[in-house]
Design a binder for these strands. Sequence first.
DNA 1: GTTCCGCATGAATCGATAG
DNA 2: ACTATCGATTCATGCGGAA
Lengths: 292, 292
Amino acid sequence: MELKTDLYLGDCRIELKRIPDNSVDLIVTSPPYADQRKSTYGGVSVKEYVGWFLPVSKELLRVLKPTGTFILNIKEKVIEGERSTYVMELILEMRKQGWLWTEEFIWHKKNCFPGKWSNRFRDAWERLLQFNKDKKFNMYQDAVKVPIGDWAKDRLKNLSETDKIRDNAKNGSGFGKNVSNWLGKATVYPTNVIHLATECNNKNHSAAFPRELPEWFIRLFTQENDTVLDPFMGSGTTIEVAKRMKRNSIGIEILPEYYDEVRRQFAPIEYYLMEPAIEYETTEYQRSYAIR
Amino acid sequence: MELKTDLYLGDCRIELKRIPDNSVDLIVTSPPYADQRKSTYGGVSVKEYVGWFLPVSKELLRVLKPTGTFILNIKEKVIEGERSTYVMELILEMRKQGWLWTEEFIWHKKNCFPGKWSNRFRDAWERLLQFNKDKKFNMYQDAVKVPIGDWAKDRLKNLSETDKIRDNAKNGSGFGKNVSNWLGKATVYPTNVIHLATECNNKNHSAAFPRELPEWFIRLFTQENDTVLDPFMGSGTTIEVAKRMKRNSIGIEILPEYYDEVRRQFAPIEYYLMEPAIEYETTEYQRSYAIR
DNA sequence: GTTCCGCATGAATCGATAG
DNA sequence: ACTATCGATTCATGCGGAA
């Protein structure tokens, strides 16, 4: 079976309209947080945030299959000494749209941003909100079982050669890859707390989103040949992981720099070109690509 | 200085009225969670939960000192496959009362309740919501410093003398250039993710509240001779810890069984008896005690 | 070839200073 | 007053060059 990778350049509130109803198995995304990354993205203000996001989530609800899942990575910032409430308000509004708020996973960031303040400690966690269209959805729990006990620590260390793998089992939730190496070992199901460090590799792009995060959810909520969507693609971590895991993928990105970078990354195997659907919006950049 | 332990039997919405304004330094409590079954202990239905709690939080706002802190341990239940929203609604309503929602700590329960469901994993975390009356509050961060991460052990043990005087002038954060800053540093400040196991083998009651939890917050937010309040005392974990840490404490409990148990626990040193303030509500049980 | 060490780099937050 | 910018603070991690 042929795998597809579709890339779109543009605002996802518009580009999502090109995607058919009920066609996506998993949405994993990390939208720009409020007032964050102003230098790269425009920076959505805290006041506008819910209103800005709701049209997106409405489209996402449309394109997701009834058996599919939406994972939203987000965290509220501090304003004048208080945690903002826009994430809670967003959840409440999304439920009115028809989303079910199924679960909240915690991403424990082991290497969180440093700093010291008189009234708070470092923020070491983010929300991974799970939304669904239906109470019944696909979940392949066996795909993310983790080894039990301390032996995993040594076991995982020895794999560092073959693949970039971290010693994640230390903290309990264990989260590495290479499940095949655990064959024959006792495994247990993980919990809703995920321990991972952010990737701060000084190579090209700094992906605040570690690869293991989309990988874990892709394993948990999809099978091969399913379709994964990231409407805020950024540097394409989710798309890259999905492709490697033999899932079809769709990425949307508003910034040409990121879009171009991801497109270049997949260039060697690219041979199919889609025409832009909205002609008056074409730019000097190719607006969308399908890679097979 | 003499330490005091005040115990009240009754509904905290009523008993709290006996406590003076601005007299408490720290409130740590774990109220009965919302439940579908009303018959259970303190059983409050999900629908009623916010309305039931708001009169309590209003009284707590009154008795707390402006420099004090309120730590609320809570987690929403799953109902018909969805996480309930009453905790979010409660936060929004408490802000309307005048509370500041300063921070949300995560309690990672390392040994969470076992079980398996087709649509979710085990729940391994709870919220520890921090509320304050004022942006300025007492926080004794040095009291809860933790051992430095393992990475430092290997990296710091073999630093030469020349390394220690390396300049870190350049620009930017200036950290990392001078690793020798960390020589002799054994502890760092913690984050807002707290890793604790639940206490499983309690004698009588399963106090899901491990002693370390109130202990950590008492260390962080109070000094000796300060006053700690738990309006849902239960089996008295918070009170016991506060007493051991030389803090004055106030405990309120609605169930005579629990109240009596805690009272018995402190009986050997009990010599002061307070008269009930509300006579028509007296029961066969002694309604309040002050222990010095 | 291993192990060791220098270094850059973070979805941060506060308070002071500047326009 | 009210907003925008800037410096100071802090610590875990991976990479790459050195021992």
